[in-house]
Design a protein around this nucleic acid. Sequence first.
DNA 1: ACCTGAACACCGTTCAAGT
DNA 2: ACCTGAACACCGTTCAAGT
Lengths: 212, 212
Amino acid sequence: MAKDITRERIVAAALELLDEEGMDALTVRALAARLDVRAPTLYWHVHNKQELLDEMATAVMRQVTDALAGIPAGADWREDLAAYARVLRAEYLSRRDGARIFSGTRLADPQVIRMKEPLLERWVTASGWTPVEADDAIDLVTAFVVGFVIEEQEKRQSAESDPERYSVAEREAWLGEGTPLVKEAGRLRDDGDPRFERHLGIVLDGLGARSA
Amino acid sequence: MAKDITRERIVAAALELLDEEGMDALTVRALAARLDVRAPTLYWHVHNKQELLDEMATAVMRQVTDALAGIPAGADWREDLAAYARVLRAEYLSRRDGARIFSGTRLADPQVIRMKEPLLERWVTASGWTPVEADDAIDLVTAFVVGFVIEEQEKRQSAESDPERYSVAEREAWLGEGTPLVKEAGRLRDDGDPRFERHLGIVLDGLGARSA
DNA sequence: ACCTGAACACCGTTCAAGT
DNA sequence: ACCTGAACACCGTTCAAGT
């Protein structure tokens, strides 16, 4: 009997399962159980697990384009790029290991690439950028966000599983003697939004310096 | 009888296997076979597979510190940071999926963190940076390199498995109508070293703008 | 058209038994 | 101290069989 299983429902359930249990627990059997169905059923709707993972990545990136479409055009390229960076980070952060799992995945959906067009157009006409400069700007910010969030999520999850390793005292004992500056930097180190905004600002400064 | 299996030999063989066959083929049994031994033997030397993966990540990062130690101090922070970025990229590139697999992994070895000290010291004394600025600089460059190489390796591997998708004509058909700037950027797009150096330069410009 | 039970080859890991 | 055979619970995937 039909149970109304669709690709979309499978992908949505897979993302939920990933968030709740992690990548290792995302098995075809567990996913089927969550949809109240046996494992082979899923192969009627999806060719194999890799295709499912690709669909998940596409769904995540589509959320980025949707969020981006809901944001009004900024006053200049800097505002546009900052908005893009924040949306991308928020989306990666919203899923367990989001940045590591979903970055750089071959995209199954041209729509995701096409989202670049309105941004490129604005910067080429209003800011006098070449298409290459505009494309560089998106890719460079993307690379920065991916690297930043990978480290951010890794640290957050290590702090959960191993809290004392991240106390200042434990860390300094672990580092041993002779690294005063590393320790001082560790004590002054911030994280989360302020750190992201600061680093993002530096990247955007670099892009601005190039145009000038 | 003893077969002279050591943690070091296991980790080295695991890295070879990863490069040759990829992550999915890196199984305990296949690794044991490569070392001419049965699977349970490895559990005498390593607690479990996760510990092996951690050791692999540490070995990769140790290569970075070793390479870095072999490089003379640059004339200023910019040269030092560029050298660091190139070493990190080269090391990630040298292993299959290196950036995705080995970035942001909790490091089992304090030595890797301690490598920061000489760099921080030079920049704080010679360039007048605060420890936070110096620490930011390393982390920001690290994030950029990670994001850059993840995309670089992903694209390289997609191009191997699906060559026609990466021809200009195929790509433009796939994108459909109405994205002239995305297409133009795609035609002009470079890759490899020149692209890396250009993007790295922008990041370093940003760090320089902050100091001034 | 859609779902299932049974089966296949494989996985990480444990453990008693060998040397 | 170091290695192995046998076994366990589990995995992705296939396929004939059900409705």
